[in-house]
Design a protein around this nucleic acid. Structure first.
Lengths: 148, 148
DNA sequence: ATGTGATATCAGGTTACCTGATAAAGAGCA
DNA sequence: TGCTCTTTATCAGGTAACCTGATATCACAT
């Protein structure tokens, strides 16, 4: 059963995306782990830095994981004192989540190393190409989400 | 502690890559799971289709995982009858791995659905842009691998 | 013949997911 | 008021995919 050679795995956009992501993920993982965090924890804290005070349920939605899964990550971060969860003034069983100063220190340590990679990429890719890449990846993300 | 707004998470190439990969991965995962395979199994079988007869150790190297980890995946595929491992004629404790006809059927079933996504992407991205994207992602992969 | 290196594989452990089941509280409505 | 619907949070149990460490085996070069 012959396959169109233009659709062989090594010619696929999906393969190129997976490979690039996997390679960058490995570097990020080492950076994050060096600060004593896991990737899941790092991702949550990054989100909390951008939009402080969101709930665990909201974090789950933004990360496209189940609330239960996010709850696990958040519970571990809380026990480690890296985030704080305070009851919402109106809706008391809802808990607003923020990064603590201690968490911020670890996050910065991890993110500094991640940013080294980001800068490396930008130093090797012309600015206009960076825009093209961002656009293409956003298009792809949207197309994929439309398939779920 | 203020951050250069151009390096905020939502402006990062690394974020764009992660998001696109995650979205496509979800679709692929559903496709693969519908055929009764896991992503790890699918990836191994795809590699075996491109280069039949390679060893578990070689598969591990190409997937950037430990030999032990790959051994697990391969053992499960073998037990399910989806791959076959025959002793190398010269080096008898080395086992050459190939996809069985039964495995091929499941793989094709999974890959048909994955190719639907690949085609969707290509239908929405001009051909020249596809080349640009492949090049950029290959560059990024190489840069990241250089950092390990 | 002997040590080096590669392959294979067992054992044990972690992380990040998942589904299912509950509890608790606010929101909308009869 | 009381009742149902939805959302949030969380416990319990389970799985896939990784990891490190320890062994056994065998080819090969010194």
């Amino acid at each position: 059963m012959l396959m169109d050679p233009d659709f062989l795995p090594r010619r696929r956009l999906l393969t190129a995306i997976k490979n690039a992501e996997h390679a960058t993920q490995q570097v990020k993982d080492a950076a994050v782990r060096a600060a004593g965090l896991t990737m899941a924890q790092y991702n949550v804290m990054i989100l909390l830095t951008e939009t402080p005070g969101i709930t665990s349920a909201e974090l789950a939605r933004r990360c496209f994981v189940s609330p239960q899964s996010m709850n696990e990550t958040v519970a571990k971060l809380e026990k480690a004192g890296l985030i704080e969860r305070t009851p919402h003034p109106l809706h008391r069983h809802v808990r607003e989540t923020v990064v603590t100063p201690a968490g911020r220190i670890l996050l910065d340590e991890a993110d500094d190393r991640v940013l080294e990679l980001e800068r490396l990429l930008r130093d090797h890719i012309p600015r206009e190409q960076q825009e093209v890449l961002r656009d293409l990846l956003a298009t792809i993300e949207a197309l994929a989400h439309g398939r779920e």
